[in-house]
């Protein structure tokens, strides 16, 4: 009986620790470089998003932003615009992303610039959006948590005055392309 109990306990603890270790990969990366002077670090807390969402106004732009941020849990950004080893940093960050937990949403390589988006979802709800940008001189890691709507979050690319946030607009572009592609395929199927 004792043996069985310890076996179950070990399995449960092992599962919990493994799950934590996966989550910690990205958190640890942020922690590792949050005090590094080569990087600019931005953290917007869930409380801030909650407070912004509570403000009532007639301004249409503000209401749009409110719709976006009301379900957001937090934002962390780590960015450097004149770093020598941007590609090495990008690769290092890439290795920390637990591939079994996050699914790749979009990859763009433009010249020497690499942009990658990942999402972490449970069912239909996207819980985290992770953006990684790496080029020779630049590096950006951006993480949104909460209940995320990809269409809405792409609107933030204009509102956020943070280096790397402009890449968020690419999500909508990719989604539209997918939609157009699907529509084209549907039309072809109809013709046949």
């Amino acid at each position: 009986m004792k043996k069985q109990f310890f076996l179950i306990l070990t399995v449960v603890l092992g599962t919990i620790l493994q799950a934590q270790a996966q989550n910690d990969g990205i958190t640890r990366f942020f922690k590792q470089y949050e005090d590094d002077e080569r990087f600019t670090m931005v953290y917007v807390s869930p409380k801030m998003f909650q407070m912004v969402a509570k403000i009532e106004t007639d301004d249409e732009d503000w209401n749009n932003i409110r719709e976006v941020v009301k379900d957001l849990g937090g934002l962390r950004v780590l960015t450097a615009d004149s770093i020598g080893d941007g590609v090495a940093m990008y690769k290092s960050a890439l290795s920390r992303v637990p591939q079994n937990e996050y699914s790749e949403l979009l990859t763009v390589r433009d010249g020497k610039e690499n942009v990658r988006f990942w999402i972490k979802d449970s069912g239909n709800i996207i819980e985290e959006l992770l953006l990684l940008v790496g080029s020779e001189d630049e590096f950006t890691m951006l993480s949104f948590t909460g209940k995320i709507d990809l269409d809405k979050i792409s609107q933030l690319s204009k509102s956020l005055d943070i280096d790397g946030a402009e890449h968020l607009g690419k999500i909508k572009g990719s989604k539209n392309k997918d939609k157009d592609k699907n529509k084209g395929e549907d039309k072809e199927e109809d013709k046949n």
């Binding site: 949050e34 005090d35 002077e37 600019t40 670090m41 931005v42 953290y43 917007v44 807390s45 409380k47």
Partner: peptide, 11 residues
Amino acid sequence: LEDLVVVRDGK
């Protein structure tokens, strides 16, 4: 007292 926004740029 909760952190609302934290920004660090250089020092």
